[in-house]
Amino acid sequence: MDERQREQFFEEYNRGLHRLGRILLITSVILLVAVPFIIGAVNGVMPTLSGFLAGFAKVGIIYIPVAIVEFLVYTPMLGVGGSYLSFLTGNVTNMKIPCAMNARDMAGTTVGTPENEIVSTISVATSAIVTTLVIVAGVILLVPLQPVFQSETLLPAFNNVVPALFGALGLKYFAKSPKIAAIPLTLMALLCVLVPAAISQTSLLMIPAGGLALLIGYVLFKKDKL
């Protein structure tokens, strides 16, 4: 295959991946959104519009910008096929990107080449399949353990899964950026100590806390102190 044929073939391959990727994502979005409605219909309830809008407004303000940044930053690293599969199957930063990078290093390909695109797609697809299989095996083992997980004794564990997450994540992020963390953490703690009504409004508090952390981060970045 000469260079021109190779280029033509690669363009056709990429077009095919875009077509397939869009079909996959559109179908998956429909299926995923349908799940709460199907479960609701089976149980005779439906999601409430007011609850959904209130929750989505708070979630969107944080996660839509994150989603756009992730899309802009990660897709050039993942290529066409890798991007469609990674953003659908999740765990992008903690698994798919390191996996694709590792595969590329082993294969010795360079960014922007057809070889690189192919290796990235194969790597992400394999990673997604293996994860699914491992979780399926785990879920099969989990099913008989359901009565144990639902016992009264373990209730405090599952009622405190969110504090467990933010304790662990907090340590990681605060240690990574103590200069950014100091003021928002002190202010939030003071606010919740002095105004008890604020405690139950964490979903609102995270907006000024996130904004303040961003502002401090930006100022430090501009001063070259990050």
């Binding site: 933010f166 953490l185 952390a213 401090i216």
Partner: peptide, 11 residues
């Protein structure tokens, strides 16, 4: 920075 703010609110 955004996640630092998020964790600060919860903690």
């Amino acid at each position: 920075a955004m996640f630092v703010g998020l964790c600060a609110a919860y903690i």
